[in-house]
Simulated assay, not measured.
Amino acid sequence: MRILFVVSEVEDLVKTGGLADVGKSLPIALKAMGHDVTIVMPYYQQLAQRFNAPDYCERQVLFSGNKAYEFAIKELSIENVQVLAVDYPEFFDRKGLYTDDYHAYHDNAERFAFFANAALQTAKAVGFQADIIHCNDWHTALTPYFVTIDNTGFFTNAKTIFTIHNGAYQGTHKFSDIEYLQPHYQLHSQLDGDALNFVRMGIRYANKINAVSPNYAQELLSPLGSHYLFDEFNRRRNDVSGILNGCDYTQWDPATDGNIVAQYDYSNLAGKKHCKNDLQKNVGLPENDNLP
């Protein structure tokens, strides 16, 4: 299959949390299985400073109302998986991904509403006609909506899957503050009061909803664990599944990990004692084998 993997962060490129781990490891694993995978992410300031990547193709323009959003597409790679980065400096040339270290950016909803659509325009620009468009967390939750309203025919055969890594973060923002979405009058009927909930939109418009474990999927389908979205999840119950997050053993295998003081494996655990002592020393604890 051809898989467009839309995500806001990728480990080894930029990372704030576990989402980036999946953003790197899952596309690599899918490619190893024989699939054609392209990642689309924002071209953050950190990427520009590290790579200074050239434009991959001609500049693209998205229009929303009377405003034109012109952006470039940069090409990177992660272990031979193509990464296309949306370069729109007004939104992404900033110190942090989502915050300035103290506060979330006031226009995060605007930034990622634009990115959710720009990811699709990127696929069109490079001719990547995906079978599957895999979206991740609230930052990309509007992508299935944009697929649904696209009238070019480019995504006619594409299916969307929305993976929820942490359903507590839903991207709820006052709709009137999201300039990019103002021409989308059909969204007015889908607001919570005066706010748009991005995760709710992902649940409503994606073909399938996935959680990062079977147990978490069951939590999301319960009144207590659904983060106040029980009715939405319950309505799509037959389309909700959970697939347990994997582990990249090429990176996290203590038998080969060069970042620990001694290697060990199941047949010889001696090195684990040295790692424990090294940890105790580094954090200022007593070096005592008998203490946890």
Rank of each mutant, 00 (worst) to 15 (best):
75 E>Y: 03
76 L>D: 09
77 S>N: 15
78 I>F: 10
78 I>W: 13
81 V>P: 09
82 Q>K: 14
84 L>T: 14
85 A>H: 03
87 D>I: 06
87 D>N: 08
89 P>D: 07
89 P>V: 12
89 P>A: 07
91 F>E: 01
95 K>T: 12
96 G>Y: 05
98 Y>D: 10
99 T>P: 09
102 Y>W: 15
103 H>Q: 15
103 H>K: 14
104 A>F: 15
105 Y>N: 03
106 H>Y: 15
110 E>R: 04
111 R>G: 03
114 F>G: 03
115 F>A: 13
116 A>G: 09
117 N>I: 00
120 L>N: 05
120 L>W: 08
121 Q>C: 11
121 Q>V: 02
123 A>S: 13
125 A>D: 02
126 V>H: 00
127 G>P: 04
128 F>I: 11
132 I>A: 12
136 N>S: 05
138 W>T: 13
138 W>I: 12
139 H>R: 11
140 T>Y: 02
141 A>I: 09
142 L>P: 11
144 P>H: 13
150 D>P: 06
150 D>F: 09
150 D>S: 03
154 F>H: 07
156 T>V: 12
157 N>R: 12
158 A>C: 06
162 F>M: 08
165 H>C: 03
165 H>G: 04
166 N>K: 09
171 G>Q: 13
174 K>L: 05
175 F>E: 08
175 F>P: 01
178 I>F: 07
178 I>T: 08
178 I>Y: 00
179 E>P: 00
179 E>Y: 06
180 Y>K: 03
180 Y>I: 01
181 L>R: 00
182 Q>R: 00
183 P>G: 01
184 H>M: 03
185 Y>L: 03
186 Q>C: 01
195 A>N: 13
197 N>C: 10
198 F>Q: 08
202 G>W: 12
204 R>K: 15
210 N>P: 04
210 N>L: 08
211 A>C: 13
213 S>P: 03
